[in-house]
Nucleic acid binder design. Structure first.
Lengths: 145, 145
DNA sequence: TACCTTTGTATCGCAAACGATATAAATAAC
DNA sequence: GTTATTTATATCGTTTGCGATACAAAGGTA
C-alpha cells in the first residue's frame, strides 16, 4: 500500500468532507428562510451588489454559467430575484433582488452567527482563522488560474 | 450591509470553493483511469481494506448509504468492484475489488504526486500542512457529531 | 456589407449529494 | 414465539456541478 494513496494523508478529502459537512450544518438554518446553500451564496452576492449580470455572479462564486442559470431560474420561481435583458448588451441577463429578496437579508442576518457556533472548535479561533483564510485563498487563487 | 453576511468573510465559502476547484483539478487525471473523484475515494478505501460492507465505506467517507449505493453500482458496472451478500449478516452487502480494480492501484499511484504539483502554493508547505490537517480534522470531528 | 471570431447565456446529459421513505433481515422485548 | 424495534441497504425526487454543445448578440476584419 502506497502511503500517498491513503485517505488519511489527503488534503483534498479533508476539504471535500469539511465542505459537505458545513453545507449540511447550514441546511436547517437556510431551510427556515427557504434557500439552499448555493442559493444563499447567490443572495450574498446580490445583497452586496444588486443588478449583476449572470456572468459576474458566476465568476464571483467560481461557478460556470451552466450551473448558475438553472439556480437563478429556481430562485426567480421562488420570487427572490428577477431577471431582465441587459439594455446596453442584449446578450446579458441582469439579475436583481425583488422586495422579497431584499427583505430576506434581515432574516438571514442571524445565520452567520449561528453557523459560527456550529463550526466553533479548538482549532479555529480569532487568532488562527486569518491564517486559515490566507491559506485557502492562496489555494483557490492557484487552482482558479 | 452586515459585515458577517459578506462572502469574503466566510470560511464556508472558501472550503466549498477550494473543494470544488480541487475536484476539477483531479478530473483530467482521474479521467485517464476511468474514475470520478468520489469513485476514487471509494477505491482508496478498498485499496486500504478490501471486502467492506457498504455501511463501513459510507462511514469512512462521511457519506450516506443513499449516496454510496448508486456510486457502487456504477463502479460495479465498470467492473472495478463486486458486490455480494454478507454471509453472517444477510442485510449487508460486501464490496470487494475485482482484478481490474486491484490493478488500478498501480495506475493511480502517480495521481497523488501530480495533484501535489497542482495544489502547490506558497501557503501549503511541509511545515504548514500538518497544522492545516489538524484544523480540518478538528472541524470535521466537530461537524460529524 | 459580408464573414469570422469572441462573448454571454442557455440546453442537455450524467454523476453526485442528500432528505424522505421503503424494505428486509437481525435483534430485543414481551 | 410473536411482536416491536433497530439496523443495513436501497429507491425516489430534487438540487447541484460540470463537460459538451448550441445559439444569438457584439465586435472585429476584409
Amino acid at each position: 500500500m502506497q502511503e500517498q494513496l491513503k485517505l488519511d494523508n489527503q488534503l483534498c478529502f479533508r476539504l471535500y468532507t469539511a465542505s459537505r459537512l458545513i453545507t449540511q450544518a447550514y441546511h436547517p438554518l437556510l431551510e427556515e428562510i427557504g434557500l439552499t446553500y448555493p442559493q444563499y451564496l447567490v443572495m450574498m452576492v446580490l445583497w452586496e451588489q444588486d443588478n449583476m449580470p449572470v456572468n459576474d455572479i458566476a465568476k464571483r462564486l467560481y461557478l460556470e454559467t451552466n450551473t448558475v442559470t438553472p439556480l437563478l431560474k429556481r430562485m426567480e420561481a421562488e420570487g427572490f430575484i428577477a431577471r431582465r435583458k441587459g439594455e446596453k448588451d442584449a446578450r446579458q441577463v441582469i439579475v436583481s433582488l425583488t422586495p422579497k429578496g431584499r427583505k430576506l437579508e434581515g432574516k438571514a442576518s442571524c445565520v452567520p452567527y449561528q453557523m459560527g457556533q456550529a463550526v466553533a472548535c479548538r482549532s479555529i479561533t480569532e487568532k488562527t482563522a486569518p491564517e486559515l483564510f490566507r491559506t485557502l485563498d492562496d489555494l483557490i487563487g492557484t487552482l482558479s488560474k
